[in-house]
Design a binder for these strands. Structure first.
Lengths: 217, 217
DNA sequence: GATTGTGAACGGATTCACAGCA
DNA sequence: TGCTGTGAATCCGTTCACAATC
């Protein structure tokens, strides 16, 4: 009933709403309007309302949205109220930085800006370097890539972060798909192919910088 | 005459076309069709043609596109045929990994997958940690953030990569904007505000993972 | 009076389909 | 014949504007 027809663009905005609503909660607002959510996220109030009503009627006319209620709803919709285990493939510079970044965001005291502690967690990493395999880094154990399928099962990995060099990116993704991974965040600068049962997002630094170059000068 | 009316979505696809055409060049194809470019990039051939004709009539009817010519055109359009200097603010884990990644991509021998050597270069970094300031890392000198305006001028910085913690992200962006930066790639997990003369792209890992969680399970 | 929820209008991007050309 | 360039048609996401409701 749920995800069938929710447009992708909307799903990508949900975390923004969650972040906004958590900020209002932190500042002890009890009610928040679509206008306020829009201002915080840089969207229009109509957009906010349209998006939210795709999942239910969360607001009260004339009043606004109950902050705590909306927060719970958004967390549930995004599945952030149950544990979601993430695997990281490629424990080079970028991979390590990502673990750091992720751990930091989770452990930092809650300030106005901190990411709220959610149930998304990098719980296992994979590499081919024998010096790394068997070690535990910031609480994350490192396994050989060949163990991906087995460990994906064992750790219940649902999301894979792909931080291997471009030339191995597609094969890693293929492994991940066979291992039953449902969503992949890819950092390698290549166009990848996945079956359409798997969701792929790419964070391609090279592409970003090159397109920004267009606007330079 | 140029950038005035090119839609943003198109600009974001140009680096994809460039990557494709460089791959065909590497494999010594002389001519490439919109169909082939589409297959490589995951887009339709009509899309490829529509996009390219926004910048001129680069193809030959009945034949296709001349690979070397198209490559040159794309590089020129993206301004990658002249030097574009990038500054990095925030030399923590992520910042360092980004420099590494970037240097690697530039120095690696040209394989089928390597990023072609372009003129985009991180030439200066900024931080507030006295232990880092004054050092040079992978050829990139590190300055105090207070020197941003001065060094931006001196190094001709056009693009800024923002890798500082969320709570300082907006102030860094404000500095960068005052220093005449034209485009910003932001990694901090916050909604930022810039004047519309400045282009802002955000690569927000938290948002990416949270939206992927929706598809997990 | 304020703000939501939503059908209708709009606008922009994608795809279609074909005329034009090598 | 094969493939580009492009107007027309379509699709899809955003914004408008207002009736419903607290």
């Amino acid at each position: 009933m749920r995800k069938a027809k929710i447009p992708d663009v909307v799903v990508r905005r949900l975390p923004l709403y969650l972040r906004a609503v958590e900020d209002f909660d932190r500042r002890e607002h009890v009610i928040v309007s679509s206008k306020e959510l829009g201002d915080f996220t840089g969207l229009t109030s109509a957009q906010v309302r349209k998006d939210l009503t795709l999942f239910g009627e969360f607001g009260k006319q004339g009043i606004g949205y109950d902050v705590k209620f909306l927060r719970t709803q958004l967390r549930d919709i995004l599945r952030l109220s149950t544990d979601v285990h993430i695997g990281l493939v490629g424990f080079g510079n970028l991979g390590q930085a990502l673990v750091h970044y992720h751990v930091d965001a989770r452990s930092r005291p809650r300030t106005r800006f901190s990411v709220s502690p959610d149930r998304l967690r990098i719980v296992a990493a994979f590499d081919v370097d024998p010096d790394k395999i068997g070690r535990v880094y910031a609480g994350v154990p490192i396994f050989h890539i060949d163990e991906l399928a087995e460990k994906a099962q064992e750790y219940g990995l649902k999301i894979m972060v792909n931080a291997v060099p471009a030339e191995h990116a597609q094969e890693v993704v293929d492994h991940a798909v066979r291992a039953g991974i449902r969503a992949i965040l890819n950092f390698a600068p290549v166009t990848l192919t996945v079956p359409d049962t798997v969701k792929l997002h790419s964070a391609d630094l090279t592409l970003e910088l090159q397109s920004l170059a267009y606007y330079a000068e």
